[in-house]
């Protein structure tokens, strides 16, 4: 008995480095970050006096940007999740070459260089870019559309394009173990193709759809590079405000408070999405 206990303890020691990474480089920094959000700075020095001033300021000045960020991120997350489902379903249901081709394309774009993709979209959407040239060339518009680039639309386009492969894979992973016979059984019992989707597929992939949604939402809500590079001056998302507190303004406590306010909002939206999916995508 003693020998077994010792062996188990010795084996558990293997977990120590991972716990050190998770604790020391993730949990402790987050907790400290939360603590800092209650401090203030004076003359570029942290003043260790807990107060709610940062949160009060966010409440009075930043509710708009937080709402805007949540709105645009929710839009991105919804579009991404929907398209991800379409592609994942195709990969899963197409036994022919198309399925493998789409899976290959998805895996290829998984790691394509985040900044490089943004750069490519800038050249695509710019005044002299391919999209505008094509539109003018086809006489769909007389003049290039400036609003393609440096607009909220551009932010949505770029982030959806970037996030899709990350959203497709978990959804595909959840579809894969579904037994195709159960879909035939649903048809046999009177379900239309759409009924099969509603009754036999969607209720079983809710966790994966939520993962895709949450991932897309969190990345969008925490991004500052995309809005800065393609969003124009009017598209200020919380990521931009947060990042500037650590750059020019050097107000870490306010930045920390903004981060946690945004995170809290994100968790609320994701929880709402979860409740929504559970309500509408449940087995009836």
């Amino acid at each position: 008995m003693m020998g077994v206990a010792v062996a188990t303890m010795r084996r558990n020691l293997l977990l120590v480095p991972a716990i050190a990474v998770l604790g020391g480089l993730f949990l402790v920094p987050l907790v400290w970050f939360l603590v800092v959000s209650f401090y203030r700075v004076s003359l570029f020095q942290l003043v260790h006096e807990p107060n709610l001033a940062n949160y009060a300021r966010i409440w009075s000045d930043y509710l708009g940007p937080i709402g805007y960020t949540a709105g645009i991120s929710a839009l991105i997350a919804v579009v991404t999740t929907l398209l991800a489902f379409v592609v994942a379903h195709l990969i899963w249901s197409r036994g022919d070459g198309w399925g493998n081709f789409l899976l290959g394309a998805t895996l290829l774009t998984l790691f394509g260089g985040y900044l490089v993709k943004i750069y490519a979209w800038r050249t695509l959407l710019g005044r002299e870019g391919i999209v505008n040239n094509t539109l003018v060339g086809l006489h769909l518009t007389d003049n290039p559309i400036d609003a393609l680039l440096y607009s909220p639309l551009a932010v949505v386009l770029v982030l959806v394009s970037y996030l899709l492969p990350f959203a497709i894979l978990p959804v595909y992973g959840a579809l894969r173990p579904i037994d195709p016979t159960s879909l035939e059984a649903a048809r046999d019992l009177g379900a239309s193709p759409w009924g099969v989707l509603r009754d036999a597929v969607l209720p079983r992939i809710v966790p994966a759809l939520l993962t895709a949604f949450a991932l897309s939402f969190l990345v969008s809500a925490g991004d500052y590079v995309t809005p800065r590079m393609v969003g124009g001056t009017r598209t200020q998302m919380m990521g931009n405000f947060i990042e500037s507190q650590f750059g020019l303004r050097m107000n870490m406590p306010l930045g920390a408070a903004m981060t946690f306010s945004t995170l809290l909002t994100s968790i609320a939206v994701i929880a709402a999405a979860w409740i929504g999916m559970r309500t509408f995508l449940r087995a009836k």
Partner: peptide, 9 residues
């Protein structure tokens, strides 16, 4: 969708 995803690259 896949074209939209891969076009930049």
């Amino acid at each position: 969708t896949v074209v939209f995803m891969t076009a930049p690259l």
